[in-house]
Simulated scan of single mutants.
Amino acid sequence: MLENVIEWVLSFLIPLCEMMGIFVVGVSSAAAFGRYLKGLVTGKPSDIKFRLANGLALSLEFKMAAEILKTVLVRDLKELTVLGAVIALRALLSFLIHFEMKQNEHTAE
């Protein structure tokens, strides 16, 4: 009974987290492109790269949340291995984005 309820709830939560991640990427990309175009017109420099990286990092957090929720539904070791690899890759991407943001922060000072 409880297992069915958990599966039912997760069937809504996992795609919701995935969609939030996709939405954040779209909004961040559009906003960064808008800032880029504004910078072309006005000639003022802007922190486009930092803001885009921040949006991508947030998006990865939503996507990793969905992957973590998927661990509840894992039935066998093969699924767990694939899920673990996906989580590890997303964590690595998140780390690299944060590292890039720190490098840009230091060069801007």
Rank of each mutant, 00 (worst) to 15 (best):
E109K: 15
K70P: 01
E18V: 04
M19L: 11
P15F: 00
G34F: 10
R75H: 15
S59Q: 05
E105T: 12
L77W: 10
V27E: 05
H98E: 09
E100M: 05
I22Q: 04
L73H: 00
E109A: 06
A88S: 04
E3L: 04
I6D: 10
E3S: 06
L37G: 06
A65R: 03
M20T: 01
E109P: 10
G43L: 08
A91L: 06
K78N: 14
G21P: 02
L73S: 05
M101Q: 15
T71F: 02
V25Y: 09
P45D: 03
S11A: 00
L83N: 14
L73I: 04
D76K: 04
V27Q: 09
E61Y: 00
H106Y: 10
F23K: 03
L96M: 13
K38H: 07
K38R: 10
V5W: 02
L83Y: 00
L52F: 07
V9M: 07
I22K: 04
F23A: 10
L89C: 10
K70V: 01
K78T: 14
H106S: 09
R35K: 09
A108H: 03
A31P: 00
S28G: 06
T71I: 12
S94Y: 15
V72M: 05
S29D: 04
T81I: 15
I87W: 00
E100S: 13
L77A: 14
L56E: 12
E109F: 03
S46W: 03
M101H: 12
G21C: 05
H106Q: 08
M64F: 01
V72G: 01
P45H: 00
T107K: 14
N54L: 14
I14T: 09
P15V: 00
E3Y: 05
S46N: 09
I6L: 09
G21V: 03
F99R: 14
E18I: 03
G43I: 08
L96G: 11
G43E: 04
L40W: 03
F62H: 08
F62A: 08
A31M: 03
W8K: 07
L83W: 01
V82N: 14
I87E: 09
A66Q: 04
L37N: 07
V25W: 02
P45N: 06
P45G: 00
T42V: 03
T42L: 05
A30H: 07
S46A: 09
F99M: 06
G84A: 01
K78M: 08
L93H: 10
K63E: 15
L69V: 08
L37K: 11
L73E: 11
S28P: 00
G39R: 03
G43F: 08
L40E: 15
A91F: 13
G55I: 05
A65Y: 06
I6M: 06
V27Y: 07
V74C: 15
E61F: 05
M19R: 02
V5D: 02
S11P: 07
L96F: 15
E18Q: 08
M19P: 00
L73N: 07
V9L: 07
K49W: 00
Y36N: 13
A30E: 11
S94F: 11
M64L: 14
E18L: 11
L56I: 13
E109W: 04
L58I: 11
I87V: 13
I87S: 02
I22E: 07
L56N: 13
V5T: 12
A53V: 10
L2M: 07
F23T: 05
V41W: 12
K70G: 09
T71C: 11
D76F: 03
V72F: 03
K63A: 12
L73T: 13
R35E: 15
